[in-house]
Structure formats: C-alpha cells, structure tokens
C-alpha cells in the first residue's frame, strides 16, 4: 500500500484499484475542532480536484477535494457520531471515504510523505 498527499492537504492510501482518502494532521491542526463532516454517498463519482466532502470546524466549513477521480465505495460512518476523530486520528480512524480509482495515472504528480513534509515545512 502506498500513501500519497495533495497540496490541498488530503492523503490517499492506494492498494491496487482501491483507495482510502482523508485529511492530513497538518490540515486538522489548521482547521481546529471538527464538529461535523459531510461525506459523499456510496456510488457517487468524484473527479480529481472536485469537491468530495465538507469538513466543518467550530469556525468554518471547508471543502475536501478528491485527490483522484473514482467511484465512492464506502464512507466513514464513525465520523457521524464522533467528528472529532478527524482531530485525534486524522491519518487513521479519521479517514473520510474509500473509492475505486478511475485512472491510476492520476496518482502521478501527487506527493510522497517526504515531499509533503517538505511542502508543509515551507508553508
């Protein structure tokens, strides 16, 4: 399994054609206390760079973009009862949704962990 990162602070774990998407620890730190997450419905198609979910902190609502195009196969229901999981475990139990990749070629150009770390350090 390989983890990639976007410059919009999403992470994506890819295992063959299946992928899991969430927001990074840096992103949750910037957003602050998360109080609500709106997830895509299963079966929805998402487009790379398009709006896929909404994450709401105490202060504001923010869009979460799809790192790659695909079809949503699962949404993290645990976030309904406990949206703060995004704060406490953003890159594990606080995942947002899973999808089937439409085009594995879209992974090119995403960052690996070291590149993302350098990207965040420069912000």
């Amino acid at each position: 399994m390989t983890r990639y990162f976007t410059d919009e602070h999403e992470w994506i774990d890819v295992d063959g054609a299946q992928a899991t998407v969430g927001i990074t620890d840096y992103a949750q730190g910037q957003l602050g206390d998360i109080v609500f997450v709106e997830l895509p419905v299963i079966g929805a198609t998402v487009t790379k760079g398009g709006e896929a979910a909404v994450v709401e902190s105490v202060k504001a609502a923010s869009d979460v973009y799809a790192p790659v195009s695909g079809t949503v196969t699962a949404a993290n229901d645990a976030l309904g009862d406990d949206p703060a999981l995004v704060n406490s475990a953003p890159e594990a139990d606080g995942w947002f949704f899973k999808l089937t990749l439409a085009d594995a070629g879209e992974l090119e150009g995403l960052m690996d962990a070291a590149a993302y770390q350098a990207f965040v350090a420069a912000l």
Binding site: V35, F36, E38, E56, A61, G80
Partner: peptide, 8 residues
C-alpha cells in the same frame, strides 16, 4: 438546529 450540521 436538528442534527449535527452547523447552520451558519
């Protein structure tokens, strides 16, 4: 507001 979604 019903539910958890903030209305802003």
């Amino acid at each position: 507001v019903e539910g958890k979604m903030p209305v802003r």
